[in-house]
Design a protein around this nucleic acid. Sequence first.
DNA 1: TGCAGAAATGCAACGGGTGCAAATACGCAC
DNA 2: GTGCGTATTTGCACCCGTTGCATTTCTGCA
Lengths: 207, 207
Amino acid sequence: MPYAAGVTLRDRKRARTRQALVEAAAGLFERQGYDETTIAQISAEAEIGTRTFFSYFASKEDLLFPESDIRVHATFHAIANRQPDDGPAEILLRALRQVGEDSDDLAGRLAALRLRLIRTVPAVRGRALQIQLDAQREIARQLAAAFPESLDEVSAAALTGAFVGAVTGALQVLLEDAGNTDDPAVVRHAVQVAVDAALSPWLRDRS
Amino acid sequence: MPYAAGVTLRDRKRARTRQALVEAAAGLFERQGYDETTIAQISAEAEIGTRTFFSYFASKEDLLFPESDIRVHATFHAIANRQPDDGPAEILLRALRQVGEDSDDLAGRLAALRLRLIRTVPAVRGRALQIQLDAQREIARQLAAAFPESLDEVSAAALTGAFVGAVTGALQVLLEDAGNTDDPAVVRHAVQVAVDAALSPWLRDRS
DNA sequence: TGCAGAAATGCAACGGGTGCAAATACGCAC
DNA sequence: GTGCGTATTTGCACCCGTTGCATTTCTGCA
């Protein structure tokens, strides 16, 4: 029932405008750079008033992170569909592995742009880190709920933080080495190498 | 030769003004809140022009992170003075442990304020995370240099990221549970618990 | 003491972001 | 299809952080 009731004209129009904003922004950011692009320009290109922009996105940075919760939901899914003998670490491992393979997320034009701007623009990097931290927290909560007897909230958060931190750290180095390539294949490969390198200590213990 | 030559009047005056800015800001932030305090106010209280503020700090957030590299330097020190048979993990472990014990950093009024604002104000949290990431990167670099045959750059970054991520994750939960206390003793205790909880997986393997 | 260079300052401007009130468009009942 | 109540859009004025520029003031040093 994806196209169920309740999806009104208003809703569709709103979604379309939102999409238009993201695309307009992506184009302008690529052409002129992030700092050089003004919200007024983006709004104009999407044919809405400047003021209205802020009823779609709370800030300029947020344009680069629409649907910021898909990763969290993916992990929820990994937790829900876990193998009976999977421990917390196995779940996180599988989930993070999947991030590397999920081409939808990394191959897209917007994803490449986002990655470049995260490396380049401090404001964007800051926002990205915050979103990551929130996601981490939420995943930890779910993990603790799924393993009530072996994980308290604090341990769950520590574990999640360790995994995410490891991947982030490795990725940081790999991307800075890779120079300014936006080639999706290169980026995807870097992510996979990073995940494997980051998670190898955990792999060693269990295999 | 700490008070060596070259320390001119200008330098001392500049340091004094910088300090005055930090203190003025701390007071105002405590009294009125972060967002409600304007740079003009801070500058006025420190008796400089608003414009001049930006020749001391690049942004409002940076007021809360003067000497942001002492932690990095502490880790350098831990690396330099390592025991002959210490591995990379032991070094990071010792360094992070020390953070919890170093009362200079956590007991101070400014440190408590900083911690509260990190939890409260998104802009501050963003800046803090960026500084942390930079520090992490730098530590990883040093670690890789210290263990050339057992650690490549990527592994070093992953390891560092895992440790820091674990502590950060644990601390996040502990501080949000602790409510809005600014009691330094409580905070310090939370940090120690967080570090121990976060690092216990690594401790188990080695002891 | 005087001069070159550094720092401080004032001013104007720009962009992100918000509160407010008027105008507009949509959903829905009739 | 009409009309009304409500959600959305919009323009406007405003605040604040931040920067460039030109001017003035101050310090280091010969």
